[in-house]
Design a protein around this nucleic acid. Structure first.
Lengths: 207, 207
DNA sequence: TCTCCTGATGTCAGTGTCTGACATCACTCG
DNA sequence: CGAGTGATGTCAGACACTGACATCAGGAGA
């Protein structure tokens, strides 16, 4: 790893480096300039100084160019699930892990907002976002199972956590005052209220 | 409406009727025979005795041909949300509405399983399924708001309900013994356990 | 140094999805 | 009987994506 990194740094000659980043950035620029639909993959490749064919070697999809950061997000969350403190409610393990993304999003607020506007405007992109979240939920469920939580509790806690995250994220995008973690906590509290059958547990109800 | 239906029945001449159904059925047949990916829209249209262009007049998408039933499902659920009895937990309104789909799915079990296998095998189709569910959740949230439930409670109850539904549906597909409603109830109970902070409410904990 | 190999890129020729513009033509209505 | 309507067909084209093959600088070893 570090070996190849060194030899990489020693001679930069043959091609411009960071093809993937150049493609990502070119894509974002063009999407903002003329909109997602009116930007062709050829446009993106051209601005990045590459070919359409090369674009598809880096991204399986035209859409995928907007989602390359999601693997990083997933790693962050999964690690946090593994390292979160034990909790009475499995959901709180998930919520703690999701809150761990607060700093990452705080740093990239401007980008997150632009990206979010693009996604909101295109069904295509929403679909991709949703499947990424669904896969994330599946990973979280797997992590919870490794922590000894059985099914269907693991999947439910994971999916409920993602539901909170979706709603919190939406609110965070439109709210300059509070951080993402604030909205996540609010969502988590609200979910408990919405889920609890007994308004006031007046006693341990029989059986 | 009924007028045109009558005049429609009087002379069936010009084209074979039920183009949409013919297309749906042809598509399902071909998807099962040779798989989704190896079936072209032209194949489908041909089997239905129509043109590719006509296919796209009925369905916005190749994928959409597998999802035409979803509007019917949505109507059923939304009506049930409006008519469900009041409940201490908003989630129980949603759960009651979702249980109302039990009969519908029980009738179409064979179809649902075939369709489910197709969707499970193709990321394309999963994406479409997820966005349909997300739209359904949004509709449910709107209905809940009409019943006086505020945000974010409405959205959370809706999304949590859909989470339960997804997991319940998956289990129902692989379980010949129990109905869908059974799995929904099980999921609803499990969600409460997973969400509750206090394992045993030993007293009304001071604030 | 010569040569072989590798890996990122380019070139080319497709296939399939989806769209817009326009044509057809049985049937309806005035 | 003539104008209009609506479901369908025809055609051309843009664009996303794929497979096969070519290129070619630099690295590794003889």
């Amino acid at each position: 790893m570090s070996v190849s990194a060194i030899s990489y740094a020693r001679h930069v000659a043959r091609w411009e480096p960071n093809a993937l980043e150049r493609l990502s950035q070119a894509a974002m620029e063009l999407f903002v300039e003329r909109g997602y639909a009116r930007t062709t993959v050829e446009d993106i490749a051209e601005r990045a100084g590459l070919t359409e064919r090369t674009f598809f070697r880096y991204f399986t999809d035209k859409r995928e160019v907007l989602f390359s950061g999601s693997s990083e997000l997933e790693r962050l969350i999964i690690d946090a699930v593994a390292g979160a403190p034990a909790a009475a409610a499995p959901l709180d393990i998930v919520v703690a892990a999701l809150e761990a993304t607060d700093a990452m999003f705080a740093e990239r607020r401007a980008f997150a907002r632009r990206r979010s506007a693009l996604v909101a405007a295109h069904g295509d992109l929403q679909e991709r976002e949703l499947i990424k979240l669904a896969k994330l939920a599946a990973s979280i469920a797997t992590s919870l199972r490794k922590r000894g939580i059985a099914e269907p509790a693991a999947s439910l806690a994971a999916e409920a956590g993602i539901a909170i995250f979706k709603i919190a994220f939406e609110r965070w995008v439109g709210d300059a005052k509070h951080g993402l973690a604030h909205h996540i906590r609010a969502g988590r509290d609200a979910l408990e209220v919405v889920t609890s059958r007994a308004k006031r547990p007046r006693s341990r109800s029989g059986r």
